[in-house]
Amino acid sequence: MRYAVKRVGSFAVTMLLVAVLTFAAFSVVSGDPAQRLLGTSATPERLAALREELGLNAPAPERFLKWLGGFFTGDLGVSFSYKQPVSELLGSKLPVTLTLTAMSFLLIVLFSFPLGLIPSGAGGRFIGGVRAAFNQLSMAAPPFVLGVGISWICGVVLRMFTPGAFPDPGTDPAGELRYLLFPAVSMAVPRVAMTVRMLRSGVESELHKDYVRAAAARGASGAFILRRHVLRNVLASSVTFLGQTMAEIVGAGVVIEQVFAVPGLGRLLISSVLTRDYPVVQAAVVLLAFWVCLAGAAADLVNRLADPRLRAEHKA
């Protein structure tokens, strides 16, 4: 319990650091937002008025605190290019991105655990073949290349969906889910391959440990040992990897949303980067980093629950 408090504390510190860095980077480098909004032809009077209106005359620490507070009050400023409150803009994109991330994560867990944990003997050649093919894929194909491949095969050749035709938000939830399945698969496949490989080498190295031999000496069958000892040990060691997987999917999602024209946070981020819409960029970056750090913290907590040795380390 005390560890949980500490971990939440360090999570908060990391997030604060991320927020400070992001804010500092954009407020220092990006120059004067008022100038940007009004263009070079603006009169000095209008510039001064807008600066006052945007609160740019306050000292940087004060502006930072106001901005940070915005994550709780919902006032994150106004987008340069959409002329719309940033929080409203992010809020409208967030559900799609969260759904996509969750779907992909679910697919990864659903496929990699059976493939990675079923011993190579069982299931025979078919599973072995599927595994080998996945391994090859993981070596080369990044999600966005895979995404293009999947849009071609599933979209153009098989006509399972129309690439680029994401349903208007809110009108067709089932259609949205159906469409999101394809980007989710593109993100999941390389990661499934990596997870399977990680799990298999985990099982392999656990099977060579003495405690497996000791259990066999007590008369335990291979299946019993796998179920009772090996799986627990492998799962405990794979929790951290799953946390990293979450981080990877968030990154991959930014690109994949572009590939499949999914109107989510990633797509908004890219277009804002291209148009230098800094209020949107900095808020979106912090939001995505928050999600990644949250996954890391959750992984750490689960890891401790699963492994008594870690609990002991922190007691000392």
């Binding site: 000791a214 627990r232 492994d307």
Partner: peptide, 10 residues
């Protein structure tokens, strides 16, 4: 090795 012959999680 008694430490290795025990399942560390059990």
């Amino acid at each position: 090795e008694p430490a290795a012959a025990m399942d560390p999680l059990m």
